[in-house]
């Protein structure tokens, strides 16, 4: 039996109040919902991602997907974004600290060094949830929702743009020059 904690109660009240506001917000409704469900990353300086944060993010990608992914694609992705997109250096470093803390509470030295089961358990807390849960978290747990939306979800999105194609049998994915030869036939060895 689940217990309605004070925190959850307040979150639900918040959702109801916001829901009423949203209902009258007309054309701004979509933007408000987006703001709640996908909190923007606060502006902060760009910078070089630390080796530790890089290793932590890659360890997260391995835990969410597996170790057969193209490591350089994920590392390059996070490194570039930290260096070019305002706010993401701070976000990635804070993500590394956050999952490290959680891993330590589970007895590990840090997240990257934790067993797969521990890493998955830590990330499970950040897994995408139903929309109403996002909305309440959007009020009370915005930082972890940011990690969920801008790290965990982006890892899956990056996978869908890259490795997923290769695993389905495509010879290449969009973004790399695939050339024009052989396109009138199925991929080699496929039918």
């Amino acid at each position: 039996m689940s217990v309605l904690t004070r925190r959850r109660f307040l979150a639900l009240v918040g959702v109801v109040v916001l829901g009423a506001a949203v209902a009258v917000a007309g054309r701004r409704r979509r933007r408000l919902l987006e703001w709640l469900a996908r909190p923007p990353v606060p502006n902060a300086p760009v910078g070089a991602l630390s080796d530790h944060a890089q290793a932590t993010l890659l360890a997260a990608a391995h835990a969410l997907l597996d170790e057969r992914i193209s490591n350089e694609v994920y590392t390059d992705f996070f490194t570039w974004r930290a260096a070019h997109v305002p706010g993401f250096h701070a976000l990635y470093e804070s993500f590394a600290r956050g999952v490290d803390d959680a891993a330590r509470r589970a007895g590990a030295r840090d997240f990257a060094g934790a067993p797969l089961a521990v890493r998955r358990a830590v990330l499970e807390q950040l897994a995408p949830r139903k929309r109403w849960a996002h909305l309440s978290e959007g009020l009370l747990a915005r930082q972890s929702l940011r990690w969920s939306q801008h790290v965990v979800r982006e890892i899956f999105r990056l996978f869908a743009h890259t490795d997923a194609w290769l695993r389905l049998g495509y010879p290449a994915y969009a973004g790399e020059p695939a050339g024009l030869a052989g396109l009138d036939q199925p991929p080699q060895g496929r039918s």
Binding site: L65, E124, P128, R153, F156, R157, A160, H161, A164, L168
Partner: peptide
């Protein structure tokens, strides 16, 4: 071009298996 909805569906997955299941129809 691939359907953005397949990419979005896969991005919302919880596991590799779920992501692949949501992405596979793209073929």
């Amino acid at each position: 071009s691939p359907s953005p909805s397949h990419i979005d569906d896969a991005a919302g997955a919880h596991t590799l298996e779920e992501a692949m299941a949501k992405f596979e129809p793209i073929r």
